[in-house]
Design a protein around this nucleic acid. Structure first.
Length: 762
DNA sequence: GGTTGTTATTTTTTT
DNA sequence: AATAACAACC
């Protein structure tokens, strides 16, 4: 159906390139938009929404728009508003998969045997509940951990598998085949508790749709247009959910980038996006390949890297921005040095009049942030951790929530159990076990069982009187909450229960912070009209909307950086084992490696002007020092887009700079030896003398030792050597340039010969 | 039942 | 290295 372009449409359509415009105007039928990094994806999405609304193709309430994160949902809402020129009414069905599924489930809860007031359990509750189920089944919960079972169940739920769809052999990896049994029991327990976990939200939706065609039909009639962001991150359950809903209007538009699929560990199936045209026959596919974000070098480096992946739909990003700096690669001595050098670069940037908020440091794992935080605090450099430890996952917040949950429901066993002895009331493990036993035999909730049991002599003495007092408190709070404001109520409960006093009495340095958090909690609650509205918010929205940003450096993981961009991006820790992460490799093999590579691709493409990569020769892992090798991803960067920097301009040793630079050279050599070839390899070989082949220098009287390139080390077994981190040791064996050294203090380590000196020469 | 000392484990990533 | 879970002890 051709859509007329009127004058006022030109308003929002102008400034779009032809592909973007087509993506906006193709409103009817299935559409897949393959949007590479920085190609204006969000703009297309929001313009498309605005276009549909503007032309009255649908009312806001007839559009289903799903995103992956709350941040993305928020941003889309804002930007649609802007494009439409101010306030738009509603868009009630714009949100994350989970929040929309929860909304639907609240409406139709009874169809899966729940009450619409069901609680949403977080991971912690889930694991505690599973632990109970496992122990009740007489299984050793140390040998077979609840955490492991939880990951199995999550995996099944992500695949859309309810217990009855699993075969007998599916749970065999848990407790000799009891896995499925546990899953079943767990689901039964959830139903009794009137609770769901995250995976259930989608799964129950699917069950409802499949078993109640009339209900599904209702949603078909409602949703005229469906929009999905980050389609490459959807799992099977989300795909099934979407396909069921899309059967109505068939107007489903999915936007994504297979090269940015980085949530495979959470059940995301890149396959969903690769298969789109089969799944939705007659689909239009549009590729957005023009990049508006980064320079040619940044794009070139990223594209060269990602080209090493197989199984791609394949895109060629291009830009008209052909100036710019090459991506830099810098070797450093260790983690602290990395933080020191990067801080220096940041201050340098700031001294040129640029803002701290232009800068981001993207790490693979959050533990890498520590070095940076320490350094930044020392320097007084303003920074903020994005993502970070979640406010709502802190113990004191979860305790406070448990009080609220008990207030709300006398069947929330998990919440009751959590706080029955917090603060300490003299109700120990033995009493709690008795309560649980009573609840189980009488088939009632813990709280109800407690009410029964205090009438008997089953529990005596202090425990009994405390329980009585506790129940009376609960009764009183429930009465009072009828007409008190929910925030006042929360304050009162935390006070009267002795919870705040507990932290005031605690001498730990952190307890003041906890009290502050509780205050913050009260004010967060104040932003909602009712307790229920607030509780729904906290269970689904894990991030707190942080206010306006000051000029601060952003420190975050690569995962949370997706969708963001910064003029200057630092990418530290590009070492084998750290990035790609050893664990990803061990657990998922080649698929894991490719996902790590996509993560690297995401990292580089966050940069607008400058991307700076670092690797350290030594890193502390779980408390002990390990020498590390540069990441294979460094080898894979096309050399024409890369510039090797040295640490020489830092405080002292160009000695180290030479070594790491030498090591970098060897890293390329390794790549070749391993039969890998990178696009820049030929070029690199021609240039290697210029780039890396500097002659050893005499520094402060010490000869810098270099092994002959690619040949055996010139150290021999049995020699005594010195290593600045590990101290003295004896060479046990040598494999090329890699030495196995038995250090006197540090034990046996594998080190590169470039990092040791002969003991006799120290 | 509560407290203290010891041991085992960790997050990589998040709705 | 830091923490949580756990065991022995008071």
């Amino acid at each position: 159906m051709p859509v007329r372009t009127t004058d006022d449409q030109a308003d929002y359509l102008s400034g779009l390139n032809p592909e973007q415009r087509k993506a906006v105007l193709t409103t009817e039928g299935p559409l897949l938009v393959l949007a590479g990094a920085g190609t204006g994806k969000t703009r297309v999405l929001t313009t498309r929404l605005a276009h549909i609304l503007h032309n009255r193709l649908a009312w806001p309430s007839q559009i289903l728009a799903v995103t992956f994160t709350n941040k993305a949902a928020r941003e889309m809402r804002e930007r649609v508003g802007q494009t439409m020129g101010g306030a738009i009414e509603g868009l009630p069905w714009l949100g994350t998969f989970h929040s929309i599924a929860a909304k639907i489930l609240r409406i139709h809860a009874e169809l899966v045997g729940l009450k619409s007031s069901f609680t949403i359990l977080d991971t912690d509750d889930q694991i505690r509940l599973l632990k109970q189920v496992i122990e009740a089944a007489g299984i050793d919960s140390k040998r077979w951990t609840a955490r492991y079972m939880a990951s199995l169940i999550d995996g099944w739920k992500n695949k859309g598998l309810t217990p009855d769809r699993l075969g007998a052999d599916d749970g065999f990896t848990f407790a000799d085949g009891k896995g499925v049994e546990i899953y079943k029991t767990y689901q039964d327990r959830l139903k009794v508790l009137n609770a769901v976990d995250f995976g259930d939200l989608l799964l129950h939706n699917i069950t409802i749709f499949q078993k109640n065609p009339d209900v599904l039909k209702g949603f078909h009639d409602r949703f005229r247009y469906l929009l999905v962001d980050e389609y490459q991150d959807t799992n099977v359950a989300q795909y099934l959910w979407l396909r069921l809903l899309a059967q109505g209007s068939n107007n489903v538009c999915c936007v994504g980038d297979d090269d940015q699929s980085i949530y495979g560990w959470r059940g995301a199936e890149v396959d969903n996006i690769l298969r789109f045209e089969q799944d939705f026959p007659g689909a239009t596919v549009i590729r957005l390949e023009r990049n508006y974000r980064s320079t040619e070098h940044i794009l070139g480096a990223a594209s060269g890297l990602i080209a090493a992946n197989k199984d791609r739909l394949g895109k060629t990003l291009w830009t008209e921005d052909d100036g710019g700096h090459k991506v830099t690669v810098t070797g450093v001595w260790d983690g602290p040095a990395e933080a020191r050098i990067i801080s220096g670069e940041i201050e340098n940037w700031a001294s040129k009049g640029r803002s701290y908020s232009d800068v981001a440091i993207l790490v693979r794992a959050s533990r890498q942030m520590r070095n940076f935080e320490e350094r930044f605090i020392q320097l007084g450099l303003p920074y903020r951790v994005v993502g970070g430890p979640r406010f709502f996952e802190r113990a004191e917040i979860r305790d406070a929530h448990a009080y609220m949950r008990v207030l709300n429901s006398d069947t929330d066993d998990l919440a009751f159990e959590r706080i029955v002895n917090v603060p300490k009331r003299g109700i120990g493990a033995t009493s709690v076990r008795k309560l649980q036993q009573a609840a189980r035999t009488m088939h009632i909730s813990l709280e109800q069982a407690t009410r029964q049991i205090v009438k008997t002599d089953e529990i005596r003495g202090k425990a009994r009187s405390s329980l009585r007092a506790f129940l009376l408190d609960i009764d009183r709070w429930r009465r009072e909450s009828q007409d008190a404001k929910h925030t006042d109520m929360a304050e009162r409960i935390l006070d009267q229960s002795g919870y705040t006093q507990m932290w005031r009495d605690n001498k730990d340095a952190k307890s003041q912070g906890r009290l502050d958090n509780l205050k913050e909690l009260i004010s967060a609650m104040g932003e909602f009209d009712t307790l229920e509205a607030y509780m729904e918010h906290v269970s689904l929205v894990l991030d707190v909307d942080s206010g306006p940003q000051d000029a601060e450096v952003s420190l975050m993981t690569l995962h949370s950086a997706k969708g963001l961009e910064f003029p200057l991006v630092f990418l530290p820790g590009w070492e084998e084992g750290t990035f790609p992460s050893q664990r990803a490799l061990d657990e998922s093999g080649l698929a894991g490696l490719e996902e790590e590579r996509r993560l690297a691709y995401v990292g580089i493409t966050r940069a607008r002007e400058l991307a700076k990569i670092y690797f350290a020769a030594n890193r502390q892992v779980y408390g002990s020092w390990q020498s590390s090798l540069p990441s294979r991803f460094i080898d894979e960067l096309p050399i024409q887009h890369v510039e090797v920097e040295s640490e020489a301009n830092q405080y002292n040793p160009s000695l180290i700079a030479d070594r790491v630079q030498e090591d970098f050279g060897r890293s390329f050599k390794r790549a070749q030896d391993a039969g890998r070839s990178s696009p820049g390899w030929e070029r690199y070989q021609k240039n290697r003398d210029r780039d890396f082949g500097r002659q050893p220098k005499e520094i402060e009287g010490h000869a810098v030792r270099r092994p002959a390139k690619g040949k055996a080390s010139n150290y021999s077994v049995g020699e005594r050597v010195f290593h600045t981190k590990f101290g003295y040791g004896e060479i046990m064996s040598a494999d090329g340039t890699k030495l196995t050294v038995e250090f006197d203090k540090a034990g046996e380590k594998m080190v590169l010969d470039g990092f040791v000196q002969r003991a006799s020469e120290v």
